[in-house]
Design a protein around this nucleic acid. Structure first.
Lengths: 177, 177
DNA sequence: CCGATATAGTTTAGGTTTAAAGTATCTGCT
DNA sequence: AGCAGATACTTTAAACCTAAACTATATCGG
């Protein structure tokens, strides 16, 4: 994800001090700007961390981020995941999963096990080598994330987790409508 | 950016109730998990919003997200931006900017103006048509973001903005080291 | 002036990503 | 049984993206 960041020098915290009474239109615009600002700031943080992790994964392990991510999903489901489940969890298209799985299979890190109950479906699983490789990488990866976020207090992190969980739920809720 | 999301059913808020005294190693692991959780939650929210915006931009305006993003950068700098500046602001590689600019130039939405002072450099600017097209799209875009985030209170949004600004600054600070 | 080094941008090769079309299998209905 | 529609996955074309190599221009020290 590399888009639309507000990488600006001015991090001026728009003064939201006294709130005069505003008409509906103004309040609407106000909220729009606030939401946009929030979005851009979150996007900026995400892209920065993502780029850093991508580059470290490549440098340390010669693996790409999507491959690592797919393995991370599988690691949580030893019984394997179907292509469609991977697609949903990773929030990418099915065709994409096909490609990444192909690559990982070629590297012998995952296998496609045909589903005996459904001739169309596979279960994708980590191989023993895949589990081993992932364990090493995951430990390092977790350390990197902690390092990147080390300057924030634990309390702030907890608060962010709460707020983002809330956001996530709202996003889920609103697309069921 | 479509990676490594923790798209799980269980949004169980890990009970961080009473905090027993822990040894250093445990506290470290604890912090690592907290950071990882925060990262995954933020990533998940970002990808969801991004996918939604990408799809709406395509459906409503037949434009891609990176092209829209590049135009958004230019809109803030009427005097134009050089390729390298676009690359830095959008946090993508220079080669990538070359490609996106090529496309937008072909669509007559931007122009490359040679820099009279530096034979290697261009200034990329929106054309009149580009400005016009962007104005329409940007208004709609802002509305979408507001809509997606409408279920959060203004106070929560402000708090998120604060925390993310802080995160962004820390990220900036730590890579100058 | 001239060569060494740096900088601005492009190109290339390979991987990722999407949307849309295609293939094969399954499920339900008659 | 058999067909209609749905589902699971793959393929395709076009765009995006990165890292690394490359081209051209600029700058600096002699």
């Amino acid at each position: 994800m590399p888009p639309f960041s507000e990488n600006d020098d001015n991090q001026n915290p728009i003064e939201d001090g006294e709130a005069p009474v505003l008409d509906l239109a103004s309040r609407l615009t106000q909220d729009h700007h606030q939401s946009l600002k929030l979005w851009l700031r979150m996007l900026s943080c995400t892209v920065r961390i993502e780029n850093e992790i991508r580059s470290r994964l490549r440098a340390s392990f010669g693996i790409t981020l999507p491959r690592f991510d797919l393995m991370a999903q599988l690691e949580r489901y030893p019984q394997g995941l179907r292509m469609g489940e991977l697609s949903k969890r990773m929030m990418v298209t099915g065709g994409n999963i096909t490609g990444i799985t192909d690559q990982l299979e070629q590297e012998k890190l995952v296998v496609r096990v045909p589903d005996p109950k459904d001739g169309r479906a596979y279960s994708v699983k980590l191989t023993a080598a895949g589990r081993k490789a992932f364990a090493t990488m995951a430990a390092e990866h977790e350390g990197w994330i902690a390092e990147l976020l080390q300057d924030m207090s634990g309390a702030d992190k907890n608060q962010l987790i709460d707020l983002l969980s809330q956001m996530k739920q709202h996003l889920n809720a609103s697309d069921e409508k």
